[in-house]
């Protein structure tokens, strides 16, 4: 019985140690993946979502960016290349979330994550899929996101779209 207790205690200690390590000292790649999940969750809209909830998601999403984040976005009808401060970003996010309608789902598929030598900058390339369940179509776009490490947080410094098929 004593032996069983000891083994059980050791297992509990190992699990707790792993949990503490993963939570408080995550490896950079896990931290970036967690960040992408958080961004996707806050960018998605749920049916019946109220204004307060929507604004809270917009704030949380804006907090994933640096105070002056750069955007270079191209889509079939136009392009946008500008730097947005926090307030402009929140307005922009609210507009996008409102425009997406009652329900939309954002996902980052197949992310490839690279780091600078000092592990302070991370470059992520991923396939963004935006789905509106009521609509049969979805948007698929390759994007590049540059994260920089600020304190213990990874914040987005730059977002740009990539072309899967290049133009002639």
């Amino acid at each position: 019985m004593k032996l069983f207790r000891r083994v059980f205690l050791i297992v509990i200690l190992i699990v707790a140690g792993l949990w503490i390590r993963a939570t408080f000292f995550p490896n950079p790649e896990s931290a970036i993946r967690k960040r992408l999940t958080e961004i996707a969750r806050n960018a998605s809209t749920a049916p019946g979502e109220g204004n307060i909830t929507g604004t809270a998601h917009a704030w949380r999403l804006a907090n994933c960016f640096t105070t002056n984040a750069e955007f270079k976005i191209e889509w079939p009808e136009g392009r946008m290349e500008e730097t947005l401060d926090r307030n402009e970003l929140i307005r922009y996010i609210n507009g996008l979330r409102f425009g997406a309608g009652r329900s939309s789902r954002i996902e980052f598929l197949d992310p490839t994550i690279a780091f600078s030598e000092d592990k302070k900058i991370s470059t992520v390339e991923a396939t963004l899929r935006a789905t509106i369940p009521a609509d049969k179509n979805f948007i698929v776009q390759e994007i590049k996101i540059i994260f920089i490490k600020v304190g213990r947080d990874w914040l987005i410094q730059r977002v740009e779209t990539l072309k899967t098929l290049a133009s002639l």
Partner: peptide, 23 residues
């Protein structure tokens, strides 16, 4: 089939122009 950053989603297209050609 042409991949994006991975193969979760693929583009299906037909090849009409080969390397070095003008299209």
């Amino acid at each position: 089939a042409i991949r994006f950053t991975g193969e979760s989603i693929l583009l299906m297209k037909r090849i009409v122009g080969m390397p070095g050609e003008k299209v």
